[in-house]
Structure formats: structure tokens, C-alpha cells
Computed example of a mutant assay.
Amino acid sequence: MVNWERKALNFINQTGRWDKDKHISSFLAFSIALVKNLLEADIALQLEFEDEHTARVKNASPVQLDEMVIDSAPVKKLLYSHGFKTIYWHEIAATETAFEGLLGHAVTAVIIPINTSPDNSVIVVGWNKPQAFDAGFQECIETIRLRLKEILMQSQQQLYFQRVAMRFAAILHTIPHALVFINNDGFSGWVNQEAATLLQLSGPGEQLPAIISEAMTQLRNKTTNTTDIYKEAVRLFTSPENAICNWIWEMETPETPTLKVSCLPITTQQVTGRLWIFEQ
């Protein structure tokens, strides 16, 4: 007797380890292969809706179905008729045209909507012999569906924030001033290209605060008004505003002009630290 509860837990455990250890972009391909293996199915694939009339096969097993394109309208009509709930086909009708031959020799199938919107995708799993869709099996499928939806939502959020981060990083790297951010957690810091050049760091982007602080100390040691800078630093770190603007660092090296330095506190729900701005 098949232990469907154990298979569902197996799916959760394996996708949980993948979620932590590997890149989210390959999660769905791994998950569909895992579903096929756990359910002992003959075919498994993702059908992604690209637009109102087009659906494309992704992450298919067998792989020769990958990138196949079909009309999405009949599939969406089928999903609407079932209220976007999981569809259990105990017997695939010979007249069924929604999947236009994608199911091959399968005689039974399960259609699993990943999202509740027709603009996303479904997972299709098929068997070449009759499959009993008892209560245990359906509970297993529902657990798998919820887990897939959870991870895909996380991946969409992660990819969105990655795109936002890349966009703002590109903007900050083009600003002519040297920008340095040091997080109060003591573990993270960031510099743009100008700051990396000024502080002679390995490159822009994430840097350890200890490395940034040492580089800033080395820069300060190259000034001719070190005593004044020290006095201003004491005032900075003891003032209620915890900020300073137009702080002059007179550089002794001819290749580096006088620097106008600002230090501003950054406090949000997600981030707390200091932003340093060096203007030449």
C-alpha cells in the first residue's frame, strides 16, 4: 500500500533543502522531476501561459516536449470550468483537445494549477495506466501544490528584489561621488565604483565593514589636517544629529584633491547604518 503522506513529507523535505542550498531559478525543474519520481508518473511538465493565446512547455520529462507551444485558450477554459482547482482525470477522453497531444499515451492525468491566475502556469502529470486518485493521493497532491506555490511566491519576490537591487546598484555606480555604506550589524558594507577607486579596494559592491574602515583610516592618514578631522569625528559621534556635512579633508597627495566629506545616518525598518559621501 502506497504511503502518500510519506511521499508528501519527502517532497517538502527535499524541496526545503534545495530552497536553502541551491539557486531558486532551478527549483521548478527539480520539483517537477521530483513529483514525477515520487508519483511514479510517466510524464510531468510545466505549461506556462505566455499570453492570451500561447502556452509553452517547460521543464518537461520526457525532455523532447520542452518548448512545445500550444493554444492556451482551451487549457484556460478547462481551468475556469474547474474553478482553478486541481483536476483529476480518471480517464482522459479521446476527444480531449486541451493539451493537443502533450499527454502522449497517458490514460490518466492530474492538472495542478500553481497560481490562481490564468497568466501563470500549471503542472501536468500523466500515467500510461489507470491511477487510483483516492483521498490519500489527493491530500499528497494538495500538499505538493501548496509547497510549489509557496516556493514560487518566494522566488518571484527574490527575483523582483534582485532586479531592484541591480537597478539601484547601476544608478549608484554612475554617481560621480564616492559612496560608502556601513551597516550597524558589523557584517555588511557596500561601496560604489568611485569609492572602490578612492579607497583602493578590490572592487565595487559588498565589502566587509572591517575592510572598509581600514581603507578609510588609510585615506584619513594621508590628510594634512588630521587633527581637525579627529576633532570633527568626535563631534560627529557624540552629536544628537549623528551627522555631518561639508567636512573638509585636505589630502597631502597631489593626485587626490581636497575632499568634501558627509556622513549621514540611515535608519529604516530593514537597514540601519551610515552613508559616507566623498566629493572631490
Rank of each mutant, 00 (worst) to 15 (best):
F27M: 10
H53V: 02
E91T: 14
N10L: 08
H105S: 14
Q157A: 10
L34K: 08
A132T: 05
T217L: 15
L264H: 12
W4N: 03
F278A: 02
P74F: 00
L208Q: 14
T108K: 14
L79D: 00
T197P: 02
G189L: 01
V122N: 05
L264I: 09
I266H: 03
K58P: 00
N3E: 06
L78N: 06
L102A: 09
F137Q: 02
N183L: 01
N192H: 10
R235G: 13
V164C: 15
Q193D: 10
H23M: 13
V122S: 07
F161D: 07
N3Y: 11
A178N: 10
V125E: 00
T258A: 12
K22D: 08
W247C: 07
T224V: 06
T15D: 10
F137D: 00
E50V: 09
E250C: 15
L208A: 13
I70E: 05
I111R: 09
E241L: 04
C140T: 01
A210E: 08
V35P: 05
R274P: 01
A73D: 13
L47A: 12
V124L: 15
P118M: 06
Q64S: 05
R147I: 05
V63Q: 11
M251W: 03
T108N: 05
P254S: 08
A233M: 04
S26F: 04
F27R: 08
T224P: 01
S72T: 02
I266F: 01
G126K: 02
N115L: 06
L198R: 00
K77N: 14
G101C: 12
I211S: 14
E150H: 02
Q280H: 09
A135T: 14
A33C: 12
Q162A: 15
G273M: 04
E150M: 07
T272R: 07
W276M: 01
H82I: 02
F168C: 05
Q162G: 15
P240V: 03
D185R: 14
I92H: 01
E139C: 11
Q218L: 07
L201W: 03
T143H: 06
T268V: 07
K22Y: 15
C245E: 12
L45T: 04
S213G: 08
G126E: 09
F133T: 06
L236G: 14
T95G: 09
Q158W: 09
I141S: 09
A8P: 01
L78D: 07
R145T: 03
T217D: 10
